[in-house]
Design a protein around this nucleic acid. Structure first.
Lengths: 267, 267
DNA sequence: GTCCCTAAGTTGTACAGCCAACTTGGGTTT
DNA sequence: AAACCCAAGTTGGCTGTACAACTTAGGGAC
């Protein structure tokens, strides 16, 4: 490298819409550029990536920055990393990871379907013990409970029972009934999701589920319970989502390098 | 710090059995020690961790090493990390993450249950198209197909249909029929799992499932399909596991910082 | 008392360098 | 021909430094 003041030798890839909330740091730009390059087939699946040093020269950044960028790809399972040999491209499919999972609407659009949402009911009442615990509120604290039916291209697919603490619920209450995505609306009000804990198992449909999803009472549904928190670790949402069988599957990549996925005994 | 040659001011925590395969690097030791401290309640849930600089002094390592250690805890959702303020302890429950998930036996023991396994059948035959694709073999390549019934304290809980490429299958074929854990046996032969992709959804029991799990044909089961690879990215195992409802749930932590979890349309 | 601003503390980003551990390929030896 | 060994290349681990971005608490102005 020559001087290293005016950085950037083509990191402004135009591949996909960037997450508006992600800070535009050097290593994120490099990671995004490498993602684009891999998705575009610049390095075929199974090909070996250039050495870290070579990438550092190309992007005119230090090797440490390159390593930060590659760590992101590594965590998503896009590339290997083994001491002694070059990194290898594992998958050339794009992973949207976090944002896609926290928002039903964003996920739906990413697979080319039209998301829909209809709010059935919003009530404010004292939270149940489990809910208060999940939201880290003192028991009996008031919460907002929102029942929504989610559709994919008009077809009912999922029943969402979300619970919010008061400071969030007051916002959600004012959202339009037909709003596509509560999470993007919340972002507009400064409520950001940064972490989520998911529990995935199987639950029988109750009468409400059966009516909304047009299935039989007792039919098995795929259930995802989720607690989302903001950057301070404060719980923002606790939700119980139930999907019709065959409409959705959950995928996880985990590695010895990072990522927490685990089994749990039910209840 | 004074000289920084003879390292280590008490990183030899004796909390839990260490993963024998994880290299004993400095930052892993620090991370393990911090995990132990958190689990032991040294910093109550919600407490603020010491600053990185303070930890660096205490452990007599550089701040960079501390940051590597904290990144591990961050990825597991144990602590927050926000610019400008100290890290906050989020959860004081231990997460075993990878090893626990890849091995049914290890998971079972971690929750205090006695794992059991009975191999029903082992056959060598040409792989089906889906299987060959998952294992990255040319189509029609020979594979080993292993059917096992897994029990928890004697109770049948899961049917495992694993498919291995020949070089692995030859090893598995020689394992005892009642072996608890194939994955630990494979480790003994130098076959290490480092990455896994999981797909979780719901599947109806076929006649074989019904007989083994003592449930009705067509009953809904929680299905986990998993492809595990070694450190070079070579697929080592492709498995279809079906759990009786109510016996297990899958949990994931994901954050904007790392981790890939996503929805997928079924099939 | 309330508001505002500043300063100290803390984490994030980036850079540079050094050595260890490991892989690979090629040449040498047997 | 096969086995062996060595050197070059590459990633992992660790240290040190510097600055930017952000939070928080406390003091001062009003």
């Amino acid at each position: 490298m020559t001087s290293g003041k005016t950085g950037g030798a083509g990191v402004g890839g135009t591949g996909q819409p960037k997450d508006p909330k992600a800070p535009q740091t050097l290593y994120r730009k490099v990671a995004a550029d490498l993602r684009d390059a891999i998705a575009a087939g610049a390095y075929g699946s199974g090909a070996r990536l250039p050495a870290e040093g070579a990438l550092a020269e190309r992007y005119e950044v230090s090797r440490g920055t390159i390593r930060q960028a590659l760590a992101l790809l590594r965590a998503d399972g896009l590339v290997t990393s083994r001491r002694g040999t070059r990194r290898v491209v594992l998958s050339d499919t794009r992973v949207q990871s976090f944002a896609e999972l926290t928002s039903f609407a964003r996920w739906a659009r990413s697979i080319g379907e039209e998301p829909g949402g209809r709010t059935i009911a919003v009530v404010r009442e004292p939270g149940r013990p489990l809910e208060c615990e999940q939201l880290r509120l003192e028991s009996e604290a008031y919460v907002y409970r929102v029942l929504r039916l989610r559709t994919l291209s008009g077809r009912p697919v999922m029943v969402e029972r979300a619970v919010y603490p008061e400071w969030v619920g007051e916002l959600v209450e004012r959202f339009p009934r037909e709003a596509d995505s509560h999470s993007t609306l919340l972002e507009g009000h400064g409520v950001l999701f940064t972490d989520a804990d998911h529990t995935i198992d199987l639950a029988p449909a109750d009468t409400e589920d059966a009516v909304l999803l047009e299935c039989g009472v007792g039919d098995a549904l795929l259930r995802e319970r989720r607690r989302s928190t903001d950057s301070t670790g404060t719980p923002v949402e606790w939700s119980d989502d139930r999907y019709l069988p065959g409409t959705v599957a959950f995928t996880v990549h985990n590695s010895t390098a990072s990522t927490a996925l685990s089994r749990r005994t039910s209840q």
